[in-house]
């Protein structure tokens, strides 16, 4: 099973369990921007009381789940990890948090029709807003690529992006990125 097939299999399993989700991380920025290799598949799932669904019945014996839920001390995120046996791939499921923007990006999620199924993602604007908060090198590169692709492919809602950046204190970071982009028609 390839990594993208594995990601779609987990999305289908969440659908089968009736668990609303969005695919976040590198896969969401790839969908909106320039693709890059991504070693993890990350989901945010809407669940109650950190009760992660048991997806193994849908996924089959080539999968295993880390029996221990983990708590990211840096971010306070509760997550469950699925692993594809005989593969380095990890699928991480994070519980939807109370963070205002986490709630907003989840509520505004968009479903894209892929071959054989629909898959839920945050909007391009929400990926930009989220990545500007974390601002690791790869996040900044993702923001650049999403802006460049989406400005040509559709229309970015700049008032929405700028509104969240003002609330998160990331406006200067956004302006720095915009100034660094190659000259282009706007």
């Amino acid at each position: 099973m390839t990594t993208d097939e594995a990601a779609l299999a987990v999305a289908a399993a969440l659908d089968a369990e009736g668990v609303p989700y969005i695919i976040v991380g590198g896969y969401s920025s790839n969908t909106h921007g320039i693709p890059r290799a991504t070693k993890d598949v990350d989901f945010v799932v809407s669940i109650s009381a950190n009760h992660f669904p048991d997806l193994l019945t849908h996924l089959g014996p080539q999968w295993q789940r880390d029996p221990q839920l983990s708590f990211e001390t840096n971010t306070g995120a509760v997550r469950a990890v699925l692993e594809l046996k005989d593969s380095p791939l990890k699928v991480e499921m994070f519980a939807l948090s109370d963070d205002e923007h986490d709630q907003a990006r989840f509520a505004r999620r968009i479903c894209k029709p892929f071959t054989g199924q629909t898959v839920a993602f945050p909007t391009a604007e929400d990926v930009i807003v989220w990545k500007l908060r974390w601002a690791r090198h790869k996040d900044i590169e993702d923001v650049r690529s999403i802006i460049l692709v989406q400005e040509r492919e559709s229309t970015l809602d700049w008032p929405y992006i700028r509104g969240w950046c003002a609330r998160h204190g990331t406006t200067a970071r956004l302006e720095e990125i915009l100034a660094s982009l190659p000259k282009r028609g706007r």
Partner: peptide, 29 residues
């Protein structure tokens, strides 16, 4: 080079871009 990558991404569908991330990772592995 960046704008060439943008042009290439624009020729792909969102699904192709999604799948490309996994394919690149699988090739790297």
């Amino acid at each position: 080079m960046l704008m060439e990558q943008v042009e290439e991404a624009l020729r792909m569908t969102p699904e192709q871009r999604f799948r490309a991330g996994g394919e690149l990772f699988d090739a790297a592995c």
